[in-house]
């Protein structure tokens, strides 16, 4: 416990505390006008909306992928399993370049989507695709160990008590997985919110349309406006913390109820 707090303090709490303190050195008016510019507000919508969508996609497909990887046998399973971590290992810029190579209207996949009038690159959809990609490992890798650890006896017990498969899943498996699912969701969301490197390649970065908040923070620092950057950064930080708190609180509450 002591080590936990010490290490967290050194690496995380002190720097972030210093950052928040720095943000408080500006006057309230400066802070408020920096974080409520129309362009900035428009970017919040895209950043939060896009992150929520991406995290939701990851929740559904991540859970599915984890389930398939743990429970079923199929050829190439090991390879698929190993591929899951790639979105972390590839630098975000490389991921962005690879995605735009695929999804631009001249790209490998994009040219076929273009036939149906679907445009991915340089649109909001492109932002969601990039955010889904970079958050993909979270849900899979949080659900997987819990699923692997889940004893077959429990399901068998449920079955021998006459429950059918659906009931077993709903009553036995889902509650066991629920904390992991929420964790994965929260993490995928949080990560998507701050992502910059991959998104700027596949998004058009047009203000009011396809501009994400982290890009605006970069733009602020480019004009040596550290305070403005810190102000927007603080808003993102607090918003993310509140969302995480809600999700973690929910999880804590349910685990108490079930536990």
């Amino acid at each position: 416990m002591g080590f936990t707090l010490l290490y967290m303090g050194l690496v995380f709490l002190i720097p972030v505390g210093a950052f928040l303190l720095y943000a408080t050195t500006m006057s309230w008016e400066t802070f408020w006008s920096a974080v409520t510019q129309r362009q900035v507000v428009a970017s919040y919508k895209l950043s939060f909306g896009g992150s929520l969508m991406a995290a939701t996609i990851n929740l559904v497909f991540g859970a599915l992928l984890a389930w398939v990887l743990v429970r079923y046998r199929f050829p190439g399973k090991r390879i698929v399993d190993a591929l899951v971590d790639l979105p972390f290992a590839l630098p975000t810029a490389v991921a962005g370049i690879a995605l735009v190579t695929l999804y631009a209207s001249t790209g490998w996949v994009g040219q076929y989507l273009d036939v149906f009038g679907i445009r991915v690159a340089y649109t909001q959809l492109g932002v969601v695709v990039a955010l889904t990609y970079i958050g993909l490992p979270f849900v899979v890798r949080t659900v997987q160990p819990v699923l692997e650890d889940l004893e077959a006896e429990l399901e068998e017990a449920s079955a021998s008590l006459g429950a059918d498969r659906l009931t077993t899943i709903r009553r036995v498996i889902f509650p066991a997985l629920f904390p992991a699912l929420l964790t994965g969701y929260a993490l995928a969301f949080a990560r998507a919110l701050g992502e910059y490197g991959s998104v700027v390649f596949i998004s058009g970065n047009l203000p009011f349309r396809t501009e994400i908040t982290p890009l605006l923070i970069v733009a602020k620092t480019e004009q040596y406006d550290y305070h403005g950057a810190a102000a927007i950064g603080t808003v993102m930080l607090i918003a993310a913390f509140v969302m995480l708190l809600i999700i973690n609180g929910l999880q804590w509450w349910t685990s108490r109820r079930h536990g």
């Binding site: 995380f12 720097p15 950052f19 929260a186 993490l187 949080a190 993102m236 993310a240 969302m243």
Partner: peptide, 22 residues
Amino acid sequence: ISLIDMPFAISPVVVGLIFVIL
């Protein structure tokens, strides 16, 4: 728990800024 999650939610750009400010 939420505090532990925070480093994921802070944009890498801001992380850099934090340490430059420090």
